[in-house]
Computed example of a mutant assay.
Amino acid sequence: MNPHRATPRIVREEDLVGFTAGQFLEVMKALTVILTLPQSAADHVDALVIATGQGEDWRLTHAIRTWEANPELRYLLVANGNPAEETYVKITLDYLRSLGLRRINGVYLQAEPAPNTGLQAAWIVRQVQARGITSLALTVSPYHLARVYLTVLKAFTRRGIRLPIIPLPAAVPPDTPVPETRATAYDLVPGEVKRILTYMDKGWVATPEELQQYLQWLWSHHTALLVRAPV
């Protein structure tokens, strides 16, 4: 990659001027309530969903390990990435096999390019509708998870669809350089916060109110999924 290329995913402190303490607090609340949803529930959902990008193969390998270890998962949905990224790799079954995929029944790949998270989310919604999927787990890198979750939730909300969405962050150290930018999660979180706040104003991600209403529904209607007694 070109180390001198501008990386808008990385923002400086002065780039956050103009946002209020209250707005930052809302993002902190969202991060907390999303990331503390029980990840164990991902073992009992209908579909495992991967939002690819930034050359982060660990998103794929983490999800593939989960998929191969859990035959109860009926679907593996892999959302495509952005061909403009220098680290972009076309997602094919052969490529996924090179990362450990063996069980291919139920695997569906987004064929068209998805230059942004909104296009990934729209494809996920279409797959859920087409295949009658009733619950899903969402795998992406931890620094990116809240924005992806809020984007996917917004896409479902627009369609009037509610189903359990369980966060399943990929296991990766936060100081690992991301292949596309060579930045770490510590470097990238401020940019994610800015995007969440900016995209809320544009209506592209779920608002704090929408997230709160959704989680009230999730916890009241799917307690058995979220809190399972040990076998």
Rank of each mutant, 00 (worst) to 15 (best):
A114D: 01
P113R: 06
R102G: 12
L93M: 12
Y149L: 03
Q129E: 15
E112I: 08
P142Y: 03
R126I: 12
P164R: 04
L96H: 01
A130S: 13
L96Q: 01
T139A: 04
L96D: 05
V148H: 08
G100A: 11
L138P: 03
R159I: 10
T134Y: 08
V128T: 04
W123A: 05
Q129V: 15
V125A: 13
S98Q: 15
S98I: 10
V78P: 01
R159L: 13
F156Y: 11
R158G: 10
R158T: 14
V128C: 01
T157W: 09
V125R: 10
G81Y: 06
R162P: 04
D175G: 08
S135T: 03
I161Q: 09
P173W: 04
V125T: 12
R158Q: 14
A122Y: 04
T117E: 02
N116A: 11
I133K: 04
T176G: 04
W123F: 13
I124E: 08
F156D: 05
L96S: 09
A79W: 00
R97I: 11
V78I: 14
R102W: 08
R97D: 11
T87P: 02
V107A: 06
A170L: 01
L99C: 12
P142K: 11
G106C: 07
S141H: 01
P115W: 07
I166C: 07
I104P: 00
D94S: 15
A111V: 14
A84C: 00
R182P: 07
G160T: 11
I104L: 14
L109V: 12
L99F: 11
K154N: 13
N105D: 15
S135D: 05
N80M: 03
V178G: 03
Q120V: 06
L101N: 06
V78E: 01
R147D: 02
P173Y: 03
T157G: 09
Y143I: 04
T87Y: 07
Q127L: 05
T176W: 12
S98P: 00
R126A: 15
Y108M: 13
Y108P: 02
Y88T: 09
L168T: 07
T151G: 08
P113N: 04
D94Y: 10
A137K: 02
D175R: 08
Y95W: 15
A171F: 13
G100R: 07
D175T: 11
V140Q: 11
Q127N: 12
A183P: 04
G81I: 01
V128P: 00
R159D: 13
